[in-house]
Amino acid sequence: MKRSLGFVLTLFALLALAACSGSKAEGPKIVIENAWGRPSPKVATAGAFYMTIRNEGSEDDALIGADSDACGTIELHESYMKEGGAMGMRPVPGGKIVIPAGETVELKMGGLHIMCIDKQIDFQPGTKVKLILHFEKSGDIPIEVEIRNPMK
C-alpha cells in the first residue's frame, strides 16, 4: 500500500513536470521568410513590403504594426477588388493581420502589404531596409527587407 502511494505520487509529479515543460512549447512561434519590396522611383512617396509569415506555434498571433527609419509612417494595408472590378486599398480591417497557429499568411502583390508612407530613402535594387515588426504576443521581431524586382 505504501509502495503504491509512492508510485502514484511519483507518477503525479512526472505528469506535472511534463505539463510544465509542455507549456513552454505552447504559444505562438513566428517565422518570417522572403521579405522584399519593389524598387521604386523617388517620386513614388509610398512603397509596399511583402513577406511570408508562418506561425509554427500552438497559439494564434497577430501582426499589429511595424516601424522603420526608412519610412515616415507604416500602415498595414490590403488591396482588394471592389464590386464592379475596380481595385481599392484600405487599412486592414481591425488594424491587424491575424496569423493563426500552424498557418502561413502571405503578404503579396495585389493583396496584404506593409505600406511604407513617406519613404525616407531611395528604394534601389539591393537596398536593405531594416524593419521592426510588432506582434500582439510575440512582441517585436526585427527583420531585413530586400529591395528587388518581383520574381516570377
Partner: peptide
C-alpha cells in the same frame, strides 16, 4: 473607368480607388 477619392484614417490622407484594367 471608375475612380473615387477616399479619405482614410492614418497618414495617407486619401487613397484613390480605381479600375485597374
Amino acid at each position: 473607368i471608375y475612380y473615387e477619392k477616399r479619405e482614410v484614417p492614418g497618414a495617407t490622407g486619401y487613397l484613390m480607388d480605381h479600375t485597374a484594367t
